[in-house]
Amino acid sequence: MDKALTELLIGVIARQLEGCRTVAIGASSPIPGAAALLVRARTGGALRVLMLGSRKHNAFTDGGRELFDCAAQGRIDAFFLGGGQIDGAANINLVGIGEPPRWQQRFPGSFGSAYLYFLVPKVILFREEHTPRVLVPQVDFVSSPGTSEAGIYRPGGPQALVTGRCVFGFDAPRRRFHLASVHPGETPASIRAQTGFDYDAPASVPITESLPPADLALLRGRVAGEIAETYPRFAATLFGREAA
């Protein structure tokens, strides 16, 4: 794990969560989880964090259904989704490549994506690997579509795609991404070369901002201990921390 990059990504995602009241974190999401806990710490608890797998940061008491019921009611402002493949129209594939029953490549499964992508207003797509293998012209299997036809109930959808190389914003009416910033060490040309789908890019693209020193200290201190409860390996590798 590249520590500087991971901290940069946590900072990027933390900025995406500004203004949210309630964020939910799904399975296998240590970087979004750390970002959410950072915003929570920075705002004195103004951001409510509901993190799957956590005991301390999970206020649900009515079982696995509760997150999904809350999302359908509009109680969840932001959520994160990834994908084995993500395409230029923000369609995501968490299931596999090839024709079942003989998958050529099999991913874990769709989790709640086929539902939450439709219902949570701010879905942030996050996939650290940024290669033409992941960012494809068209996904092989639509676990969940980036946009829906008029007449389909859909208050939610993608707000951004954060990768290990850059940040894309999403323009829903045009069904296209645009390059919002590139991480240090990358250029608009290097992003173009590593991206399998077409997207818009302004004439001048800013460099992704790093976390301010105070936030970085908060992340490495209090937040490192908090995330270790749910993601012990992540916290140990990145921060050398045990659960607080």
Binding site: A114, Y115, Y117, F118, E149
Partner: peptide, 11 residues
């Protein structure tokens, strides 16, 4: 009935 799902290959 359940929301979401429409347009997915799951469905």
């Amino acid at each position: 009935p359940l929301r979401g799902l429409i347009g997915t290959d799951i469905l």
